[in-house]
Amino acid sequence: MTENSERRVVSVIVVNEASVLSRITDLFSGRGYNITSLTVAPIPDSKYSRLTIVTSGSVRVIEQITKQLHKLIPVLKVYEHADLVEKEMALVKFPITENISDINAICEAYNGKIVNVGNDVIITMVADEPKRIDHYLEAIKRYNPKEIVRSGAVALER
């Protein structure tokens, strides 16, 4: 039986303590699970941090991932999202010689804008669903982007 691999977003609430991130990433590498992206930041006014992990695998693998994450002692909760709002940010550096008004118009279409203008380059920021970020990065290719950085996805259940 071949099982279809699908993309899933898993959020993990962990105690904010030393080496907790290694426990999570070791689990993924040790058991052969994929990490497409991973973001982590402290939850305000608490002793916890929240990780958002984009992963992929069959239904059985995803179930194992959530169970194995839950087994780790400092893990408080694991959410495997079904209905979620998901956003990702991308920063892109362009030569200032490119058509800035075109770039700006495209950025606006993807919830973004120019956030920095220097002597040689401009930097744009967009924030949108990860799939839309893919489209955006495709669209700006012709303006010779110098550097691209993606934040990885963050998500909340609706």
């Binding site: 030393a18 080496s19 290694s22 426990r23 070791d26 002692i73």
Partner: peptide, 16 residues
Amino acid sequence: AVGISRPCTKHNYLVT
């Protein structure tokens, strides 16, 4: 040590 024992223990601690 805790880096090495992490995947082969139920839990581990480095006491500081």
